[in-house]
Structures are given as C-alpha cells and as structure tokens.
Design a protein around this nucleic acid. Structure first.
Lengths: 116, 116
DNA sequence: ACCTATTTGTCCGTATGTATG
DNA sequence: CCATACATACGGACAAATAGG
C-alpha cells in the first residue's frame, strides 16, 4: 500500500491517512477480508506515531469500512448485502433523520444504542 | 455538573464521561447555549487526563450535541426538537437488521451510504 | 490446559500549534 | 499583545483479546 503523508498540508495526518486507506478500499485496490498492516508496523514505515495510525483506523472502523480486533489486526469489512425490507426501513430512517436535521454521526449513535 | 467515573466498570472512562454529559444534555439538565467546563478544568476535577475529557467532548461533537471551538470551549448545541418519529423509524430499522442478522458496523455503513 | 507472541484499546504525560476573545 | 482552550502529535505503559504452539 503506497501512502504518502504531508505534515504541512494543513489537513491532519490521521485524516490524510484515513483518506488514503479509504480510497484504497472503495476503489477496490484492497479487497474485503484483506488485512491492513499492524498499526505499529505502519506507523514505523510512515515514521508517525502509533496513535496517529490507530486514530485513522478507528475512523475507518466507525465508518464501517474495516474491522478492528485485538490480536488480529485491521481487516477490510465485507460488503454489506442489500435486503429490500431492510433498505426500505433504512430509507425511512434516513428520511426522518433528514427531516429533523439529525447529523449522520448522531443517527449512528442512536442506532447503536437501540441495537443493544 | 455531578459526574462520577468508575475506572473498574469495564467501560472506557471517556465513554462513561460522554454518556454522563449526553444524559445531562438530552434530559435538559444542561441547556442549549450553556458552556461546559474547560477540558483541563474538568480533567483536573475528575482526576483524569485531558485527553480523556477531550475524547469525550469530541464524541459528543460528532453526535452534534455540543460545539467545540478553540479559545471558546465546549458549548451545548441549541436545537430543541421532537424525536418521536425518528425513534420509531430507528426501532423499525433495528428490528429489520436483527431479523437479517446484519451486524451494527454493516448497518452503519448502509445508513451512511443512504444518507448521501 | 498453558504459555507466549501479536495487536488493538485505553490512559497518562508532554509539547506545540492555532483559533478565539 | 496576551490569556484561554481546543487540536494534533509524539512518547511510554499496561490491559485485554486473539492466535498459535
């Protein structure tokens, strides 16, 4: 995975990194099930702190793009299949969220809560 | 604001803190426009690290509950709304997701996609 | 069943940058 | 100009889950 970071770009390193990896995933250059480098490895090779990589990874995890497990590492998530009933329910929820101007992150938090 | 944290609870300190403040906001105990204590202040009074408080604050910011500005601090966002229809739609989506055994991460990805 | 290495998760500490007032 | 306060990044430490021998 070819990643270049520019500390003087104005955009945070962890965001540059997340953006870089995100592009690789959505473009299909890294495929579902594939494992990303360990955070400490990647940090060393990019010459940044582990926390910076972990924050990028956690950002991607929150977006559902990768899965993080202790001892296992970061793995690109499998594409969610579409089910018609589910997508209908999703459309309804999104419509409501839009109507109430609820931002995506808040909606995600509400749903996570409801899930448990 | 009366906050108590339990380091041995199993749930992360920053999550306990975010949950505590979130409850205060949605219940109306702290009102829109009201300013939360500065991160370093709150950290000192709770005897935790500044990062822990900042992470909790940023979690709430991502949910749209508070606004963070350098030099100004954390302010409760002002948008009193009725969420009953939204929560009903959320319940429906969660029920569908459960029925189809769609994990939370995948659901979040689907909703995020539908949002755009 | 046990131990060890791997890897993320959290927390602490410190330093510097940058927008606000 | 100056104090305030969040934003980012670095470093170190230990915990907890996972995988493999």
């Amino acid at each position: 995975m070819l990643i270049r970071l520019d500390p003087a770009s104005g955009v945070a390193l962890f965001d540059q990194l997340a953006g870089n990896i995100r592009a690789s995933i959505v473009s299909g250059r890294v495929r579902p099930g594939e494992r990303l480098p360990a955070a400490r490895e990647l940090a060393a090779s990019l010459d940044v702190n582990v926390h910076t990589v972990l924050r990028a990874y956690q950002e991607l995890r929150d977006e559902g793009l990768i899965e993080l497990r202790r001892g296992r590492g970061a793995v690109v998530a499998h594409d969610p299949r579409d089910y018609s009933e589910l997508t209908a329910a999703i459309d309804a929820v999104v419509a409501q969220a839009r109507a109430h101007e609820v931002p995506p992150a808040a909606l995600a938090a509400l749903i996570r809560e409801a899930y448990q």
